[in-house]
């Protein structure tokens, strides 16, 4: 464990807590893409298949349970909570995410570390996570101005993967046998997808204006 990875995990945890806070406190999920939340639930379930077979550390196990639990709770809330579900922007959240699922799965069948069920699903979850934010970014662009908690959620989510890139550089430099190309390349793509959002987020923060994404 290094400081970059810990910072990344904490930032990731904050992004999830910000989202849960927004939904719980305001009893509203306006501006939040259910499709992105469902993709993230799939990412965590398919990535942590080794939850009960490989014990890495208490921290690792607890964080896996938190991520799986919170992502499923958010999806449940947005789908079935009688108050929250009314504020879901169903007509704006129309990203055809089956494409993302299909492409990620085919890519995982081709590119993986070992051809085992667990490794193929792990690679699938890495590829899927890189593109899971797309429905959310599209929804933010369609709904124009971003209410600040939704914007903060995307900001922290993007920042966590940026910290992980620093973690991979650090591990590459310190551990002679560290070769996680699948994670590294996919993480770079993922962070690049956030780049334009970060730009507009920074501009709005600098001008202390509401975040306006170009339609």
């Amino acid at each position: 464990m290094n400081i970059f990875r810990l910072a990344g995990d904490m930032t990731h945890l904050i992004s999830v807590l910000v989202l849960l806070l927004k939904i719980y406190a305001t009893k509203s999920c306006s501006g939040i893409s259910l499709k992105t939340q469902e993709l993230y639930a799939i990412v965590f379930v398919t990535r942590y298949l080794d939850l009960f077979t490989d014990f890495i550390s208490l921290y690792n196990t607890v964080m896996k349970l938190v991520f799986i639990g919170s992502s499923l709770a958010i999806v449940w809330c947005m789908r079935y909570h009688r108050v929250v579900r009314r504020s879901y922007d169903r007509e704006l959240d129309t990203f055809r995410y089956w494409i993302l699922l299909g492409v990620s799965f085919i890519l995982a069948l081709v590119l993986h570390e070992k051809f085992t069920l667990q490794e193929v699903f792990w690679a699938f979850s890495i590829y899927l996570e890189a593109v899971a934010i797309l429905p959310q970014l599209v929804l933010l662009q369609r709904s124009g101005n971003v209410d600040n908690l939704a914007g903060q959620y995307v900001f922290f989510l993007g920042a966590y993967r940026a910290f992980y890139i620093l973690n991979w550089i650090y591990r590459y430099l310190t551990e002679q046998r560290f070769t996680r190309w699948i994670s590294c390349v996919s993480g770079l793509v993922q962070t690049a997808l956030y780049a334009d959002f970060f730009y507009y987020y920074f501009i709005s923060w600098k001008n202390n204006a509401k975040l306006q994404l170009p339609a």
Binding site: R5, D9, K64, R177
Partner: peptide
């Protein structure tokens, strides 16, 4: 050492 292919990152 733990065999490398165990994914120790979240």
């Amino acid at each position: 050492t733990r065999d490398q292919n165990v994914h120790d990152e979240l």
